[in-house]
Design a binder for these strands. Structure first.
Lengths: 356, 356
DNA sequence: CTGAAAGCGCTAACAG
DNA sequence: CTGTTAGCGCTTTCAG
């Protein structure tokens, strides 16, 4: 690979002149000089070494992206949008890391990014403890976190971009209640993340509104080791099989996300139960997969592209971690898409009287 | 962030001694010196700047990963395995790029990797033209290509790790034929990649073996702009809808991959056709999603983890692009997993007489 | 308008 | 065993 020196020699100018054209300071030279330099660059197929430039400037056009698992279709969607936007709008490339929601892996990833000179990262984690994140902030990292609310009154220096999980849990549950369901369940996986807790709170709030708090249960499957993977679908499947055997089983279930819902429906089917005839299921995320499922899954649509854009913009806009206060940006789920997985509860079931 | 100089000063040794401990040459110093240096490193929270090291050594612990779209669950699976393996076995991080199978985007990505000092890349592309890849090889890149065979007799310097696509097409088709299907179709998407052509050849070969070449058609949907995305499922859906309307429609279809098959089944359902009662479908890849689909999809299982491991190992083993000849490593699909999407053809259909 | 020169943080001879 | 030193390729004052 040719260097800036080679170009300078070839064009018979000094390296600083070449550097100037590289950095757009073309006004500092005679047009003919510029032409000579450009010709030399083309001829030598010269590409400035990003490493050397970074060492000097301290900035590298790389964005970190930490996800539980890139194999999870939801994170794949987000990753695609983040990468494309970062690249097209800012010329940044992205380094991804699967962390399986393990704190150590997250910390190690952040550590490596720092060593690589990466100063901006989008984190999808929502581990309750974000100490390792604030630590990265202190070391100069601009971090944007997905799927967890900012801790009120705490200036962590972290930007938060998150879905309105509480509202989502409430909306999905209300939808079931509107269809007449009185035995409700929320299907989730072991390990409480901030986002999951919020959804559960919303679920419980909607049940309480309808006087159904006695009949609202949280079903927790797992745990699993490769979180975020196909594993969550698998957990849903197992959960459904055990729920199906319960004579007092719920008639309407809200799944923590679409993959869980899809797995849950598969488990129900294996147990001989039909959706929505025997049980109704609503998901969250709005994956394309929900659309082609059988029955097609009723779900809440999350504005993935918009959120990805917001995360990248926040990560890029701040010149350093020292800048203005970090902010929280909450995105409502766009809407509830009614499809086939929700119907009235089976008539044979004993109805629970509604209190009010 | 503290530097090696700070550490040296703190430990009252020279920078080279610190560098020596950093690089494991601990035998060159007194144990007590080592201790002092380690203490200083810990105290200052020193992390060697990877950039500076790279500039000096010319090697950076980064692996490029070029995919059509990380949102495609199949590539998500591969990416997860590649990243995890590269990280755990070699301490490498990975830079991903979505290229949507566009040659320009692929070339630009390779270009950026080179500028970043990245010297190893795993490419999932299978564009017929791999000129931009060989060009990268010439510039010092070690490239491992997925899903395309090596061009016989051409020493491109590229390693190839690929499924046995021809055999897969043939196996899937034979499975349908064994069930008595005589009207066959191969569902794919516009834009012939090497892998897709091989599958089609296998499909045609199996049909010919059974004297069914007159009744084997290739159904091509699309094109689409965001290849590899949900888009391929969508294409399958549309393709199924139009195929359903044809009175001479096939009774058995082989889909180019699971996402296509899943979309195809959804389209069939929307058109009022049942699987496998009215039409049988077999996929390829063995995604977890195939397992929870309704009906569960019969598919060919690809050994994703093993292939990812092979790709990373190849990318890492070669010390430079100049080394030994590049090789081709072909992985057979592990097996055909029979589930619910394949059955005998509908009896009402006119049977095509089998020639031999 | 153009060139010389001082580093960015680290590695690796080469001396002591 | 430990220190000195010359760069890796580029950017950026500061002089001409």
């Amino acid at each position: 690979m040719s260097t800036i020196q080679d170009v300078a020699r070839q064009a018979a100018v000094s390296v600083s002149t070449v550097s100037n054209v590289l950095n757009g300071r073309t006004d500092r030279m005679r047009p003919e000089t510029l032409l000579r330099v450009e010709a030399a660059i083309a001829e030598l197929q010269f590409r400035p070494n990003s490493l050397a430039r970074q060492l000097k400037t301290g900035q590298t056009p790389l964005l970190g992206l930490l996800v539980p698992s890139i194999a999870n279709p939801m994170y794949g969607m987000i990753a695609r949008a983040v990468e494309t936007f970062a690249q097209e709008q800012y010329g940044y490339r992205v380094i991804v890391g699967n962390t399986y929601r393990e704190k150590d892996k997250e910390a190690a990833f952040l550590e490596d990014l720092l060593a690589h000179g990466v100063r901006r990262v989008v984190v999808i984690s929502s581990l309750a403890d974000e100490h390792h994140l604030t630590q990265a902030v202190e070391r100069g990292m601009v971090v944007v976190s997905f799927d967890r609310r900012a801790t009120p009154g705490e200036a962590s220096g972290i930007d938060h971009v998150t879905p309105d999980n509480f509202e989502a849990g409430r909306l999905a549950t209300r939808h079931l209640i509107a269809y007449g369901h009185t035995r409700l369940a929320f299907a989730t996986v072991a390990g409480l993340t901030v986002g999951r807790s919020d959804k559960i709170r919303g679920f419980l709030a909607a049940a309480a509104e309808a006087g159904l708090q006695q009949h609202a249960r949280v079903l927790e499957g797992g745990p699993m080791n490769e979180y975020g993977d196909a594993a969550i679908g698998e957990v849903g499947r197992e959960l459904a099989k055990s729920a199906a055997g319960d004579p007092h089983r719920p008639t309407g279930v809200v799944a923590v996300n679409d993959m869980m819902a899809l797995g849950f429906m598969a488990g129900l089917r294996e147990a001989g139960l039909r959706v929505p005839h025997d049980m109704s299921v609503v998901g969250m995320d709005g994956l394309f997969l929900a659309e082609i499922a059988n029955p097609a899954l009723t779900t809440l649509q999350l504005p993935v592209t918009e959120m990805a854009r917001a995360m990248v913009e926040r990560a890029m806009s701040r010149q350093s971690h020292l800048e203005p206060a970090a902010e929280e940006q909450v995105f409502p789920f766009t809407r509830l898409i009614e499809r086939e997985s929700v119907g009235p509860p089976p008539v044979s079931e004993t109805k629970v009287p509604i209190t009010r």
